[in-house]
């Protein structure tokens, strides 16, 4: 007997809905899970990702903290090493900078130094495109990817947002879970209630093509897909790979996608210099040089602090338009 849509719970879900759903499921299924951070309690978080969770699970499981990013991560290390599964919300990724030593010197090194696991998940709302200016728009994935001992995931779609969050919390290591603020309510999918975890370390080809390959992640997946639509009208087929996990990243899927088109464009919202695209480009050059018919190209943010004025931010942030321009240059090389 076929189920109706209502019976399967298929509804249109936003990216932030899916984060909330995953948090709710994790809190329900695993008594070790606690959720805390600034304003995540009754207020439901700056972006409402934790709305209703304190009411459902109590102040013991979902609670507000003082504005103390370092103590938030430090206390999560303490909890994780004593059997809990803390999920932290850094209100904005930008604020994590005041706690980097706790994450990269402390949490990331503990297993190597002592053999004790530190299963913490740090949710970090990141990215711009909404007039957030220099301190509410940053994309700092490259810092975390640089650090041995951390894992870094960055979903671009609602289904991956919930599936990767569950995997991050189940992982015995510190995981930085980057969630893009622009995507919170801009991206929707019709999804059932039930879902499977999305494994860490596995990229996804979200569009097949033969003329060029884009390797990207986060909000730039959507800009890249829009750019691919533009070129499709010109009979150019663009492959788009959504990395989903930045560390450890999926070398094999990248190489297969490069092999299919022999031309590759790396796109990210973060700054160009030492951005994560540099690692991807170097990896392709090391392992797939023979596959290339053109130089590896990058579209990234210019190396300036993130500007506020819409007239500036719109040219600062990579877009479908800048990606289309780069693709044309790449294909014509």
């Amino acid at each position: 007997m076929t189920q109706t849509l209502a019976e399967t719970g298929v509804v249109e879900r936003t990216y932030v809905d899916c984060i909330r759903q995953a948090l709710q499921q994790l809190l329900r299924d695993d008594d070790r899970v606690v959720v805390f951070g600034e304003d995540v309690g009754a207020f439901g978080g700056a972006f409402k990702a934790t709305l209703g969770l304190q009411e459902e699970f109590g102040r013991d499981r979902v609670f507000d903290t003082p504005i103390a990013e370092s103590a938030i991560i430090g206390s999560a290390i303490g909890m994780a090493t004593q059997g809990l599964r803390p999920i932290i919300e850094m209100q904005f990724l930008d604020f994590m900078n005041t706690a980097l030593h706790q994450l990269i010197n402390n949490a990331a090194t503990i297993h190597f130094r002592t053999g004790n696991a530190v299963p913490i998940t740090v949710r970090a709302p990141c990215g711009g495109g909404f007039g957030g200016g220099p301190f509410h728009s940053e994309e700092l994935e490259t810092i975390f990817c640089h650090m041995p001992g951390l894992k870094v995931v960055y979903p671009a779609f609602p289904c991956d947002a919930r599936g990767l969050l569950v995997s991050a919390v189940e992982d015995p290591n510190p995981v930085v879970y980057l969630e893009n603020k622009y995507l919170y309510r801009h991206v929707k999918e019709c999804l059932a209630d039930n879902f499977e975890p999305v494994p860490i370390g596995v990229a996804r080809v979200c569009r097949r093509g033969s003329d060029a390959t884009i390797i990207t992640y986060g909000a730039m997946v959507h800009e890249s897909l829009a750019a691919a639509d533009v070129l499709a009208a010109e009979e150019r087929q663009i492959m788009v790979v959504d990395l989903r996990t930045l560390k450890p990243y999926d070398h094999d899927t990248i190489l297969a996608a490069v092999a299919a088109t022999n031309r590759v464009l790396v796109v990210h919202e973060a700054w160009r210099c030492c951005g994560f695209g540099a690692e991807i480009a170097a990896g392709i050059a090391e392992r797939g040089f023979h596959l290339l018919d053109a130089p590896i190209m990058r579209v990234a943010a210019p190396d300036v602090p993130i500007p506020f004025a819409p007239s500036l931010e719109s040219v600062y942030r990579p877009s479908a338009g800048t990606i289309v321009e780069a693709l044309r240059e790449l294909i014509e090389y």
Partner: peptide, 18 residues
Amino acid sequence: ISHLGAMISVAVGGVMAR
């Protein structure tokens, strides 16, 4: 870790868990 003061909050979280 060598960063002085950093371990206090770890102790805090550890005992909260216990």
